[in-house]
Design a protein around this nucleic acid. Structure first.
Length: 685
RNA sequence: AGCGGGGUGGGCUAGCCUGGUUUAUGCCGCAGGGCUCAUAACCCUGAGAUCGUUCGUUCAAAUCGAACCCCCGCUACCA
């Protein structure tokens, strides 16, 4: 546990996972990375710590180059266009980045190249001329998984280029007996190609130590990493035969780029550099943060990124640091706060299926602070958590009825009964003392939770504090006191005003807009001039005038919002609308009725059936992903429709000679069957 | 199939690392009561859980260990 008292003023680099430039983030992306990081960064700033908070768009992925080709525009233009959209969205969510950049920037590209040259100089990059399989038909080097063949160990014919599923042995593609291209089934030829590898095995003991000794890494991350280190880390290729990306700086690697994952993580370094050089024009601030061994670097990510942040990234830092003097070393990670996943009503967020809420739509449905509050309130810290509309409604009810109501009843009472001036305090009685103690202790308590990355506990403690305020008011019943003893009633509201101030400060990392509002009602200094530690029983002075308050929150009409959400979603599919095709195009499809003769479950594949179907004159084998939706005997004997002239493709070692047609909507999958009895082989048009 | 996470009252959830201080926490919902300053908000009381199952360790297990069942995710794969 980290105790507040032990923390002196320090330097922090706070970062969050880099959103892919080609997709609008959804609520799950946001809560795992940027929003959590923002709360943490805002808290540290309130504590008076020195903080630089950076992230950016990950621009060098394949999807963007594919789309750019399709639209016939430069990948760069497309990346910047999307980057701007994502950047604006994060501003709308009030994510307080010091620098939100993009990996396609000169600072990053230069730094990455130099860093890899240093890593190479330090002996952590091996160059391997490997014999790789090249498909002359498809004109490309085949990645491991695109090669199939016979396993040299167990002689199973379904082995893939990286592993044999049957005997679980790790393979390389050239080991395979009788290899074939998974795309076209042709036999590939062996060609020599060079790749550059990061020597993780050489680093694994040090990495193990780093992770093992760090007590605050969440258990999900720690388990996963220690486990994979124990299994032995492989050397990993850092170059790819792709065009879009950062050119590999190694001699002889002219046509290769650095694999996105191996450069995006370095953005944490370069984004700070860019910030120092270009945004604040103090280049020395880069070393000041990154090269001080006492700087604490914190990475907020979803669990899918754990390995790259706790193994690859620190590995790169260690390799780079090797020949550097103490004052020139980049600091190793202090913590990686990895969340589990956010689900949407118990389902996975899915762009293609339209399941979930995206961060642009969310803001059309409810005010920003409602989302920020609710997402943190249900942050998936220890297990996957669902976004449920009912919980959202519930959370906002809590925010409104506890915190909002306590603040409002305090402020309106002062406004109406004390002419908008905070009244004087008199002697504390026992009830007062109990509550005052809570006021004095709340900021260290919440601060400790935050420093231990327990954001969810922190916000829940604040809600609880609001409830205590309401209990205090009810116990004291100043609305009775005021009839006999106005001073006694005023005393109560002096104390409550302190609590209202406390709430404004406590809520500031979570819902900054609301915090500002509360401070303005109290005529207290703005957030930028306030401090986390300013909360105490005497901060708000008697006699200070306040403004007439307007309720901070409203309850949600959840049914209305759900309706709007549905409307938004129905408009959406435009993006995915398919272009018009000609009748000729359609004619290319050979769709036919087929009779299912035999249905077999494919071993080691949860979703697949092997169907033997008859097209009247010929028999075909078709692999279909229906096992979750149909029982084998429900399919046997049925007439179905298939696309008969689809390129054959191997699935789980079985050649599928066509595609079964089925309608798919949310959870329902329905095979398409002819309405009347019609012979197998009949054409569909 | 491999890896990771999880199963706690009707719903959501805390506690689990560091066994006893919990008659298992809190919120919503439900039943009853109180208050009327406040956005019908607030406060109090009550009902409701053999803490997935079984075995084991222990004076003591929701908490530690084993096995099993189920759920979720990642990877494979879903033509």
């Amino acid at each position: 546990m980290i105790n507040l008292a032990n923390i002196s003023k320090g330097k922090w680099i706070v970062t969050s996972a880099w959103p892919y430039v080609n997709a609008t983030p959804h609520l799950g992306n946001l809560i795992g990375s940027t929003l959590s990081a923002d709360v943490f960064a805002r808290f540290l700033r309130m504590k008076g710590e020195e903080v630089v908070f950076v992230s950016g768009s990950d621009s060098h992925g394949t999807p963007i180059s594919v789309e750019a080709k399709r639209l016939k525009v430069p990948a760069e233009d497309l990346a910047f266009k999307y980057h701007k959209i994502i950047k604006d969205l994060h501003e709308k969510w009030q994510i307080s980045f010091d620098n939100y950049t993009i990996t396609h920037n000169p600072t990053h590209i230069e730094y990455v190249k130099n860093m890899y040259l240093d890593i190479q100089k330090n002996g952590y990059i091996s160059e391997k001329e490997i014999e790789s399989l090249y498909c002359e038909n498809d004109n490309l080097f085949l990645p491991d998984r695109f090669v199939e063949g016979t396993c040299p160990h167990c002689k199973d014919d379904g082995a893939r280029g990286d592993q044999c599923d049957k005997c679980q042995k790790i393979l390389t593609p050239v080991e395979l007996i009788r290899p074939r291209c998974a795309i076209c089934e042709n036999t590939p030829v062996i060609r020599k190609t060079k790749h550059w590898y990061l020597d993780l095995p050489k680093l694994q003991d040090r990495l193990n130590k780093l992770i093992d000794e760090n007590e605050i890494i969440p258990t999900n991350a720690r388990q996963m990493c220690l486990n994979s280190i124990a299994e032995g880390l492989p050397e990993r290729a850092i170059t790819r035969d792709l065009e879009w990306g950062i050119p590999a700086p190694f001699e002889g690697a002219e046509n290769k780029t650095i694999y996105v994952w191996f450069e995006a993580v370095l953005g944490y370094i370069t984004a700070v550099k860019e910030w120092a050089d270009k945004l604040i024009n103090k280049s020395d601030k880069f070393d000041y943060f990154w090269k001080d061994p006492n700087t604490k670097t914190v990475y907020f990510i979803g669990k899918d990124n754990i390995i790259f942040h706790l193994i690859v990234f620190p590995g790169l830092l260690m390799a780079y640091n090797e020949d550097k003097k103490g004052s020139d070393k980049l600091v190793l990670p202090y913590n990686v706060s990895s969340t589990e996943f956010l689900m949407y009503e118990n389902e996975k967020f899915s762009k293609s299926r339209g399941i979930g809420i995206w961060i642009d739509d969310a803001l059309k449905l409810a005010p920003l602070d409602y989302w920020r509050f609710s997402l943190i309130f249900n942050r998936p810290e220890t297990s996957d958590t669902s976004f449920l509309w009912s919980e959202f409604e519930n959370n906002i009810k809590t925010l409104n009825d506890n915190i909002g109501n306590f603040i409002h009843r305090t402020l309106t009472f002062i406004e109406k009964q004390f002419n908008s001036k905070v009244p004087e305090k008199i002697e504390y009685d026992e009830i007062d003392k109990k509550f005052i103690e809570k006021v004095n202790n709340i900021s260290p308590d919440v601060g400790e939770s935050l420093l231990n990355f327990k954001l969810r506990k922190a916000i829940r403690d604040i809600v609880n504090f609001g409830k205590e305020g309401n209990i205090f008011l009810n116990e004291k019943a100043p609305w009775h006191l005021i009839k006999k003893d106005k001073k006694a009633a005023g005393h109560v509201f002096n104390i409550c005003a302190q609590a209202v101030y406390a709430l404004a400060i406590l809520l500031s990392p979570f819902i900054p807009e609301t915090s500002e509002k509360i401070l303005s009602y109290l005529n207290a200094p703005k957030l930028t001039e306030s401090s986390w530690d300013s909360i105490n029983e005497n901060f708000i002075k008697a006699g200070q005038s306040i403004k007439k308050p307007i309720p901070l929150f409203q309850k949600l009409e959840i049914e209305e919002i759900k309706k709007e959400y549905k409307e938004l979603k129905e408009k959406k599919p435009k993006e995915g609308e398919k272009e018009l095709i000609s009748y000729d195009d359609f004619q290319k499809l050979d769709i036919r009725v087929a009779l299912v003769e035999k249905v077999e479950k494919i071993p080691k594949a949860d979703k697949l059936y092997k169907l033997t179907v008859s097209l009247g004159t010929e028999k075909r084998t078709i692999v279909a992903g229906l096992a979750e939706y149909y029982k084998a005997d429900e399919l046997a004997g049925k007439k179905i429709t298939i696309l008969a002239n689809l390129e054959p493709r191997k699935l789980r070692g079985i050649l599928s000679e066509g595609m079964l047609l089925a309608a798919d909507y949310e959870d329902t999958v329905s095979i398409l069957v002819p309405d009347k009895d019609i012979p197998a082989g009949a054409n569909v048009k």
